[in-house]
Structure formats: C-alpha cells, structure tokens
Amino acid sequence: MMASVARDWQAMEMLPDDRRDGRDVLLWADGYAAICSWCDGWRDAVGREIMAPAAWADIVEPEGVGG
C-alpha cells in the first residue's frame, strides 16, 4: 500500500477520538514525522513510544491511484 505525504497537519488538540482506534496516523514530534498508531500511547512502527507529538495528519491514498 502506498501512502501520500500529509498536507493537512493539525494540532493534537484537534485529534478526533476515533484516531485512537489502532489505525495508522502521521505524527510530528521532535522535528520529524512518524507513522504511528495508538496502543496505550502513541507508538511508531517498531513499538517505540512517541512522546508529546505536536501535530497529526491522516494517511491518505495518493490522488489518481486506485485501490
């Protein structure tokens, strides 16, 4: 599955509760972006906890690429 770069970064205060359902989201923390999911806290793909992310964005399919 190919994911696009996020365009619509939002403050963590704007994160809807449903984004903590285990789906992947893009988080901005400590000067870099990481694909993360919620599991008793934000964790990256290898399970490292992401502390105090500043912003989030949904991961979406690139335009023009069908499923």
Rank of each mutant, 00 (worst) to 15 (best):
I35Q: 07
A6Q: 02
Q10Y: 09
A52W: 04
S4V: 14
S37D: 01
Q10K: 10
L15T: 06
G41W: 06
A54T: 14
Y32E: 14
A29F: 00
A57R: 06
D8G: 12
P53I: 06
R48Y: 13
L26E: 07
D44E: 07
W42N: 01
M51D: 13
M1E: 13
R43W: 07
A29W: 02
W28L: 08
V25W: 00
M51C: 13
L27R: 03
W28H: 00
W42Y: 06
S37N: 15
L15I: 14
P53E: 03
G47Q: 15
V65W: 08
R7W: 09
M2F: 08
I50Y: 00
Y32A: 13
C36V: 09
R7M: 11
A54G: 15
M51A: 14
V65F: 10
M2T: 08
P53C: 05
I59S: 01
I35H: 05
D40P: 03
D17T: 07
A52M: 10
G41K: 02
I59H: 05
A34I: 08
L15S: 03
R7T: 12
A33R: 10
A45N: 00
D8E: 10
G22H: 02
G31C: 07
V25P: 03
G22P: 03
R23A: 05
P16G: 04
M14E: 14
V5K: 10
I59F: 09
C39V: 02
M14V: 12
A3Q: 15
V60F: 10
D18N: 11
W42L: 00
W9Y: 04
C39N: 13
G47M: 13
W28F: 07
D17P: 00
R19W: 04
W56D: 01
R19D: 04
W28D: 00
G66N: 11
W9E: 03
E13S: 11
G47I: 12
C39A: 13
D17W: 01
I59A: 06
M12W: 01
G66Q: 11
V5A: 15
V25G: 05
G66F: 11
V65G: 04
Q10E: 12
D44V: 02
A3D: 14
A52T: 13
S37L: 11
A45V: 06
M14N: 11
V46K: 10
R23L: 03
M14R: 14
S4K: 15
V65L: 07
G67D: 13
D58G: 04
E13C: 01
A34W: 02
W42A: 02
E61L: 08
A54H: 10
R43C: 06
D40L: 08
W9A: 02
E61V: 03
A54C: 14
V60T: 10
M2I: 15
D58Y: 05
I59Q: 10
V60S: 09
D40V: 07
P16D: 08
W28T: 02
Q10N: 13
A33F: 12
L26A: 05
